[in-house]
Structure formats: structure tokens, C-alpha cells
């Protein structure tokens, strides 16, 4: 699970290149990025290399849904996701299992509760605050990106051979009201 710090790293990157395209690459990703991300025993795949990209998928974030709502991939395929937030609210694009998303949702609810995340903006200074409640996360999250309105980002992702995956926005209420999509393995 990602720590607030890892969120912060990514958000800072997004913010630094405000308006531009963020490439979530090994440069900003963490040490274990080259390995498979295993959460709750589920193999969800790993951060991919640009040279392996065979397919680009554009994901448009709206309030509060994705276009498209289904992505078809081949087992082991590396996909470049270009994610654009055309809505008026902050949205997340996160590849994971249903269980992973459920865990992320609790964390993001806490971010909202602490004022770190507002409906339409991410509060950097609040992110930096020490939560001081012993929240330790055992991995970071190359599988997700959190975008303010108008921002764009990329994720290059190598999928496993097969898995039950969804892409989802875990901003409170968004997943529950249907901001998620299915990753279908061919």
C-alpha cells in the first residue's frame, strides 16, 4: 500500500509539470518498481518500459466516470495509458484488484478528512503534514495517478498473464458511484 509520501512524490511531480504531461517512469517510481507489484497475494503486473509498449490507450476522466469503461489487454502486454482529466474534480486512475481499491478508498477518505484532498484540488502542504498515527505502507504505487482537473499523465504498465483487475478512481464516493472500469484479458 502506498504511503502518503509516495502519493506526495507523485503529486509533486504532477504539480511540477503543471499542465504538461507526466510520465510516471522508473525515474520517479520507487526501487521495487521493476518487480511485480504483489498486493494481497494478487499479481497485478508491474511498471513497464517504454520500449515494450505495443499499445496506447487513452483514458478520459469525466465527472465521475471514465471513457472508456473497459480496456482489453493481452496477457503480459505492456500498455501505455494516457490519462486526461477533463472533469472539474480531482480523479484517480488506479490499476488494481477490487480488494486493493477498497483499501485505497479508506486511505483517500482520510486524505479528504484531513483536508489534503479537496473536490477540485490537492493541497500540497497538507500532504506534507506528518500524520503521526503510525500509518506505514509497505509498498508504493506505480499503479496509480491522481490528477487535478485539466491535468494529463501517463502510466506504462505491463500486465500479468491473467488477473481480475479494475481501473478505478478511489476518491471518496467515486468508485461507489461507478467511476471504475474493467480490465479484460483476451
Amino acid at each position: 500500500m502506498p504511503s502518503f509520501k509516495s502519493y506526495l512524490a507523485k503529486i509533486l511531480t504532477v504539480a511540477a509539470l503543471s499542465g504538461g504531461t507526466v510520465l510516471v517512469s522508473p525515474i520517479t517510481a520507487h526501487a521495487d518498481a521493476g518487480h511485480n507489484s504483489v498486493v494481497h497475494g494478487a499479481n497485478i503486473g508491474k511498471l513497464g518500459n517504454i520500449s515494450d509498449v505495443r499499445k496506447t490507450v487513452e483514458i478520459v476522466m469525466q465527472d465521475n466516470f471514465y471513457e472508456p469503461e473497459k480496456v482489453v489487454v493481452l496477457g503480459g502486454e505492456t500498455v501505455r495509458f494516457v490519462i486526461r482529466n477533463e472533469g472539474e474534480f480531482v480523479h484517480e486512475f488506479n490499476i488494481g484488484t477490487v480488494a486493493m481499491h477498497a483499501t485505497h478508498q479508506k486511505e483517500m477518505a482520510m486524505m479528504v478528512e484531513h483536508g489534503a484532498l479537496e473536490a477540485d484540488k490537492i493541497n500540497m502542504h497538507m500532504m506534507e503534514m506528518d500524520m503521526g498515527n503510525g500509518m506505514t505502507m509497505k509498498h508504493d504505487d506505480p499503479n496509480s495517478v491522481l490528477l487535478e482537473p485539466g491535468k494529463t499523465a501517463e502510466i506504462i504498465w505491463t500486465f500479468p498473464e491473467n488477473a481480475e483487475l479494475e481501473f478505478a478512481c478511489n476518491v471518496p464516493g467515486h468508485y461507489e458511484s461507478g467511476m471504475m472500469g474493467q480490465v479484460k484479458f483476451q
Binding site: Q62, N64, F65, S177, G178
Partner: peptide, 8 residues
């Protein structure tokens, strides 16, 4: 007229 911001 337009798509709703939720799905059911």
C-alpha cells in the same frame, strides 16, 4: 440529456 455522473 447528458450522461449522468454515476452508473447503475
Amino acid at each position: 440529456e447528458k450522461r449522468e455522473p454515476f452508473r447503475f
